[in-house]
Structures are given as C-alpha cells and as structure tokens.
Design a protein around this nucleic acid. Sequence first.
DNA 1: TTTTTACAAATGTCTGACAATTAATTTTTC
DNA 2: GAAAAATTAATTGTCAGACATTTGTAAAAA
Lengths: 243, 243
Amino acid sequence: MKYELDQAQELSAQIAQAIRDGIMEGRLIVDQRLPSESDLCEQFQVSRPTVREALKRLAAQNLIRTQRGASGGAFVNRLSFEDAYGQQITTSTLLLSMNAVSFETACEARFALERACVALAAQRRTPDQLAAMRAEIHRQSQPGLSDESFCASDVAFHRALVDAAGNPVMSYQLAGAVEAIEPLMNMITFTARKREKIVELHTLIADALEARDAATTEAVLGQLAEHTLELAREVARMRSKSA
Amino acid sequence: MKYELDQAQELSAQIAQAIRDGIMEGRLIVDQRLPSESDLCEQFQVSRPTVREALKRLAAQNLIRTQRGASGGAFVNRLSFEDAYGQQITTSTLLLSMNAVSFETACEARFALERACVALAAQRRTPDQLAAMRAEIHRQSQPGLSDESFCASDVAFHRALVDAAGNPVMSYQLAGAVEAIEPLMNMITFTARKREKIVELHTLIADALEARDAATTEAVLGQLAEHTLELAREVARMRSKSA
DNA sequence: TTTTTACAAATGTCTGACAATTAATTTTTC
DNA sequence: GAAAAATTAATTGTCAGACATTTGTAAAAA
C-alpha cells in the first residue's frame, strides 16, 4: 500500500481517513488486524503520537478496537447495532439542540417516521413487545411520577412500537428521531389531565396493535401527534405571556 | 470543575467522555473555547499527548474544531446538518455491510420511511425540487449510463423526494436509509427493460407530486418498492443457479 | 506433566523539545 | 501621526525517546 499525504489537513486526520477508506471499501475487513503502531509510523512516515491520534479518531467512531499485550493491536471492529444506536442518538440530540430545531419540526419528523412503522408493526408485533408497551403504559399512569420519568417512559413506549416493526434497520434509523426529542419534551409540564389523555391514546395503540389493526393504530397515532403539538403550543403561549 | 477518572478505561477515552458530557448537558456551549491543552493537562493531571488523543476523538465526531495560533484552541463546534448527514451515511453504510443486512430488510426500511415523507412532500414540494427530480429522471434515461451512475442517480432522485418534505430533521434521519442502500443496489444489473420501468415509475411519482396527489404518489412508491425487490430476487436466483 | 518464571511484543502514558500558525504588540518608516 | 513592517507571545502540530502495563509464548523448575 502506498499513501500520499496532502499538507492541507492535519496528518492524523489524513491517516485516519486513509484507514477509514480502507474499511469502507472493504480492503480492511472485520476483525482484521491493522499493522502495529510502529509499522504505521513507517508506512506513513510520521511519529507514533501522530499515528495514535489517527487511531483514536477511528476508535471514537467505533471503527476499530485496540487490545494491549503480545498479540494485541488495533482491529477492525464490527459496528454493532448497539454502537450505531448510541452514535445516532448522540448526533441527533446535538443536532436538535445546537440548531435550535423547533419542537414542531422534530415532532413532525418523529410521528411521520413512526407512522411508517405501523403497518409492519401490526403484522409482526410479538407478545413481548406488546408486554413492553403495556408495562410502560402502566408506569405512565403511576401518580407520583416526575415529568422526566414520564417522558422517559414515553420514549420507551415509542421505542417498543418501532421495534415491533421487526426491522432492525428501521429501529436504528428511528432511534435518533425518537430519543432526541426527549430533551425537548422535558420542557413540557404534564398535568394529570394531559397524562390521562396520553395514557388513553397509548392504550388504544397497544390494543390496535394487538388486534393487528394497522388503520386504527395509524389514526390514533395521528391523534397523539396532534395532542403532543397542542401541549407544546400551550407551553409556548404560557412562555410568551409570562415574558 | 472537578474530575474523577476511573482506571478501567483509557484516560483519553475518559477525558473525551467528560468533555462530551459537558457539551451534551449544555455546560459547554457552541463556539465556546475549551481550556488550552496545557490547562487541560493540569485539570485532568495527564500529559499533553493524552489530552490530544481525547481531543482528536471529539474532533472525529465533529464535536470540536481546533485552530492554531495565538488566540487559537479547541472550540465547541456547531454540528451542522451537513456534518450530521455525513456521519449518518458513514455509519449506516458500515452497519449494513458489516452485519450482512439483507437487501430485503434494507429495502423495506427505506421504502417504509420514504413513504412517510410523501404526504408532506405533496404539500410542500417546491419547483426546484421537482426540477431536481426531473433532471435525475432525464439522466436515468440516457442509454450509455453505467449501472453505478444509474444507481447514483436513483439515490439522488430519492434524496430529492425526501427533501421535498421540507423537514430538515427528516432529511437527516433518512439520509442514511437512502444512501446506505447504494452499495447493495450496485450489485444489481439493470437491463434496459428494467431501467425503463423504473424511469416510468419515477416519472409517475414526479407527476403525482406536481399535482400534489399524495395518494397516487404513495401507490406508485409501493409499486417501485415491489419492482426493486423483484429485481433483487432475480439476482438472487441467478446467483444460486450459477453456484 | 504441571506450574512458575522469564521474555517479547504491543499498546498506554510521560517528558521535553521544536515547528508552524496566528493575533497582538512594538518598532520603524514615510 | 498614520501606515507598514518586524517582533513577540500563545497555541496547536509534530517529533524523538523513554518507561509502564498488559498479555501471549516459551523456557525452566518442581
């Protein structure tokens, strides 16, 4: 392998990119061992700290893992769905908070995407997934629950709904949409009355899924979206009044 | 700020996590300057290379940017939609290729999510977006086009469809679903006849969107999904026969 | 044969230095 | 006095070399 490095970027970034390309193009395959750090130093004609900075960049993206010891080194990592979920959620959350994305926009995206799961979920939902949804519904109807816990349970309910579609790629794609909205939801205060309504709609969704009734599920989900937006508008009104 | 570091993980990973938490919890805000590397060395009681490895991890996630010079340093970066797209596509592509996700699963996810955009796209599509779609359709009907270019244009068409929903969060969430399937699509050979069919369906979609007809768009998208899956099945049959 | 020890290879970390870049400051020049 | 040029200081980027730590392997001892 021959490498040509440009002077424009930092060396560590270029080295990381060269290795990343190797992984994405399939020249480096899962569990393959990269050359040792000293070998990489020679190949790229740089010092060890520079090579290490490059490797740390890749480690941050879960593209490689390192092992110490005699037969250690850096290995191409199989990107697990679990790892990908985490990255997805981190990125989505920051994207929303740093770009001042409105609650309406985030909420619209979330419910639109969630609705895409409903048809599949109605076909494929397992008893376990239904049980998970009912468990969250039960939690949500506990009286002493804090707003934060209520939101967390809400997210868990919707995660279960998404998972019920039985398509891991969709679960991954939607992880961000569903989870990243939690910080925004946390700004809403849920009165007992509002919670009651949400729990009622959640119950209807679970019932419709149990009956494998996609149309009803979709309709109720639409109501839930409307209700959630209404809550947000109320908060906005309160804010503008007090200001 | 007081930091407690555990001995279990690498120091650079722990330091990166501590700073990442600060960003995600809002203690460090966009464009804020982090302490200089030497200051961080003192705060965390580690050497400069270790601090630098931590910073490179964060740079790999676009969470910080660094600037050399007198008033330089590391700054909290505003995660742009552009950056987030890139990360999303990288992660999705690797996730699919490394976990041997079947074409059926990826395709199902893609079309289901895309269908979620249709209602909004029918309302909001702009003339520019329609023009972009028609331009890709025109490219796809060129006779000399390679399979790779055809696939790339197909992806561009679907990106335009997603963008037509006018919701940047959805565009971001779907970037992975739409783009990551390209390597899988590249395994399919498109005969002239098959291309004709695809171009025909794309045209119907563009027409329906122009007419703001969500129902028709959705129906045609369903046909396109079915047609794409049929192509994949054909390839699978050929493979098993020749093997 | 089993256990222990020693060794070797690799990553993790540290120290100290120098290079390159950039903003601010000072000096020079007109 | 104002503008241009040179200097300085701060900061990141890179390098060299060393030692610590971990871990697999091989040799030695029981």
